[in-house]
């Protein structure tokens, strides 16, 4: 009998692991009160770059207060499709990218000039839908960060509006300000500071679908249906510079032959250690994921 119960428990657990995830499970909707169309001013000057606090300098620039939202990206696609800036190629939205210089170094990918996929259309994790004529956002995700977007798609968005992706240094300075803090809001991280793995936010259910994105600017000190967040803006007032989604930065070939693009900020799927400002992730520019987004600078 004991053996039977043990076997049954193991089988149940095994079957539970095979249960498909409902990617369209209902999601709570909240208005965070943070306008994704606002920009923060970052002054010129020195700041601490990297884990070992090297002193670097940037010029003055502006950077988006939040990640680009799904709604903003859908609006871009509609305008860009009408302009012929992007087109539909099988299951992808594609756009032109002028290519990287190729050095032929070991493991280097050759990124040629041409059309590259900005976003996939038929991936079940894609929150932007295309009905053959226009792009819309899956209800509930309008103010969530745009995900499932390649570096090309992020680059293309910023270029379209005459913006650019922030460089790694600009991103760091915007997140950190001028002191040595590891997180945008300070020295320590609590669950109420950011959306990270197992942070027990209202968008997460670790026993079924796992972690999902939160609306941009969610961690602003407001209470949402009893869930109290902490004000977690960076010194320049940027939200979500740690957690929620990794953010593409604009550096191309920071080392000769390095064709990956860097990402910063950690995501809903990473432990808190990856939310430290200096932690780098990287991927080839054609990579997309439900945990990767971006914001622009100008």
């Amino acid at each position: 009998m004991k053996r039977f119960i043990l076997t049954l428990s193991l089988l149940t657990a095994l079957l539970a692991s095979c249960t498909p995830v409902d990617l369209n499970a209902s999601i709570p909707t909240f208005d965070t009160g943070i306008d994704p169309n606002t920009w923060a001013q970052v002054p010129a000057g020195e700041f601490y770059f990297g884990q070992h606090e090297n002193i670097e300098t940037t010029n003055a620039y502006e950077i988006m207060v939040t990640d680009v939202t799904a709604q903003q990206y859908a609006d871009f696609l509609n305008a860009a499709l009408a302009d012929g800036y992007v087109k539909i190629d099988s299951d992808n939205v594609v756009g032109y990218y002028p290519g990287d210089t190729f050095h032929g170094i070991k493991h280097e990918l050759e990124i040629k000039a041409g059309d590259w996929a900005y976003i996939p259309l038929n991936d079940p994790s894609q929150r932007i839908k295309f009905d053959g004529t226009s792009f819309t956002v899956q209800p509930g995700y309008e103010n969530h960060p745009m995900t499932m977007v390649s570096w090309f798609g992020a680059w293309g968005y910023c270029e379209y509006y005459d913006y650019r992706l922030p460089s790694e240094m600009e991103w760091t300075k915007a997140a950190r300000g001028e002191d040595e803090r590891p997180f945008p809001w300070g020295d320590e991280i609590l669950r109420e500071n950011a959306n990270f793995y197992s942070s027990r936010d209202p968008f997460e259910n670790m026993s079924s679908f796992g972690s999902r994105t939160s609306p941009v600017g969610f961690y602003n000190g407001k209470t949402y249906d009893g869930y109290q967040t902490l004000e977690s803006a960076s010194p320049y007032g940027l939200y979500d510079m740690a957690g929620n989604v990794w953010q593409w930065v604009g550096d191309v070939q920071p080392q000769e032959g390095f064709s990956d693009r860097f990402m910063h900020g950690g995501s809903k799927d990473t432990y808190d250690m990856d939310l430290r400002i200096w932690v780098r992730n990287s991927a080839p520019p054609m990579y997309f994921s439900p945990g990767v987004g971006f914001r622009c600078a100008r």
């Binding site: 095994l14 692991s17 095979c18 995830v21 994790s125 670790m206 796992g210 972690s211 945990g291």
Partner: peptide, 15 residues
């Protein structure tokens, strides 16, 4: 398995 669909498998493996 994709990132979006991995959680039940991850849970099982973690157990």
């Amino acid at each position: 398995i994709t990132e979006a669909e991995q959680q039940p498998l991850v849970n099982m493996l973690m157990y």
